[in-house]
Amino acid sequence: MTASASGAVTLTAAAHPGFLSPTGVEIAFVLVGLVTLGAALVTVTTKQLVHAALWLVVALGGLAVEYLLLTAEFIAWVQVLIYVGSVVVLLLFGLMLTRAPIGRSPDADSGNRLPALAVAIAAAAALVWVVVDAFRTTWIDLGTRQGSTDAVGAILFKHWVLPFEALSVLLLAALVGAIVLSRKGGTPESGKDPQASKDPQSGKSPESGKDGASGTTPGERDKEPR
């Protein structure tokens, strides 16, 4: 539905002279955009949790292609490297560690679905309306490449070096934070009871990751046979 709405928007926007004669880049952009949007929609609606992660790969990859079409090639490669390469892998690991069901799970959506749909559609309508109204006639000249690795590297280390260093501190902090949070023993007593009560209910083999420092490996071992 959202996809058709975007198509309609594209058609109405084509009334403008620029939209009547789409360039090749534009056609490619719209097509890849449709794929991306579709993948994103599947990501947020599918009942299979692992499929959602895989569709997210498609969506993020599509975005990388869009970056390329916008001549921001360095960003595109970074997108592929970090998002597709690491973030999605991390998410998949998370899914496994929390023992998400592999097949269709009927309760993937919470009871908040209808309000969420209403809010999302309202927000989309408002945003699309404003954006189209504002940038109907704006034209991007893609004649010169603007995001080459060369240019971005020069700019980054010439003008943005201080934020860049600050960002490294932030990443370090996030690293330490993640380690602290996932350490065993932070809440030893409260951790046992709900898990013990949950295990028979979900019908899975008992979790052995409660004890010892090798917290993650048994969980992974549990997952691997499936």
Binding site: S110, N112, P115, A116, A118, V119, A122, A123, A126
Partner: peptide, 18 residues
């Protein structure tokens, strides 16, 4: 329910923005 809170918050934001 955090999602309820967030829905209400965003709905309000949309209304304000519009």
């Amino acid at each position: 329910n955090v999602q309820t809170y967030l829905s209400v918050l965003l709905a309000g934001s949309v209304v304000l923005a519009v």
